[in-house]
Design a protein around this nucleic acid. Sequence first.
DNA 1: TTTTTTTGATTGCAAATAGCAACTGGTTGT
DNA 2: ACAACCAGTTGCTATTTGCAATCAAAAAAA
Lengths: 137, 137
Amino acid sequence: MENHRSGCPINLMVEVIGDKWSLIIIRGIMFDGKRHFRELLNSEEKIASNILTDRLNMLEREGIISKRPDPEHKQKYIYSLTAAGIDLLPLMVEIGGWSLKHRRVDPAKCKHAEMLIKGGKELQKEIRKNLAKEHLH
Amino acid sequence: MENHRSGCPINLMVEVIGDKWSLIIIRGIMFDGKRHFRELLNSEEKIASNILTDRLNMLEREGIISKRPDPEHKQKYIYSLTAAGIDLLPLMVEIGGWSLKHRRVDPAKCKHAEMLIKGGKELQKEIRKNLAKEHLH
DNA sequence: TTTTTTTGATTGCAAATAGCAACTGGTTGT
DNA sequence: ACAACCAGTTGCTATTTGCAATCAAAAAAA
């Protein structure tokens, strides 16, 4: 049985991705085309391998990502976004926009964010379509 | 000096509100009209008073909320959203929308979220205006 | 075939964070 | 005077994170 602090929408989201790593992992899969454990491990923020293992399992259990064996490489797994994971796109865009406005971001690290803000809803729909094609198998 | 894991917009947001409580506190101030320590302490999720103290100080230091003495009550403080805090409104709406769609929310706890989704951009602008009036002193 | 490298993890331990209950000095209403 | 209330602190335990070393299986190189 699941035991939640409350059934409030904000809280239920926070209980899942309210930590220091989940959104970093989702960012890697969603925007950086990272699909393998090792690629995610090499993020700039230097996530530890045990934490990465833990979060990938959690995100899979929560229905945000899915995992399947890589047919091209017997010891690799391919991590994909589920429909729920892809639906986090607008949220990621909002986060990017807010940080762009209110944090001292590194301009070199904002290509995706700037493009997504400027591209508006149409670009977002385009990216959404691509994500669906590449992730929903 | 500030030491960040990276200058990426997603990461800089996660470093601030990537925990189990910050967004719960912001929700209380933004949607439930909570302006005093005691009101925030009585959230359904039962935040501990030391954590609340810590997060309020952090959110103030990060420029998301501000704090001033309550003129009507010498031992109370009034917590307000800053402009950056108010700019989190679209993010909160996205979170609500996502949870409404992908989590098993408690219908009784979704009045705000449902209203904000259905109300669209116009309602959001209206609420934004009210927040500005009540919080930016 | 043997060796080396790479894969997604696991382990052990220190440090940081969260959770919990009791408590504080000061303020307020009666 | 006094009980209730205020934001916040303290002391303690439990859980989570950070970090480095390590693992067996599979793949690549020799």
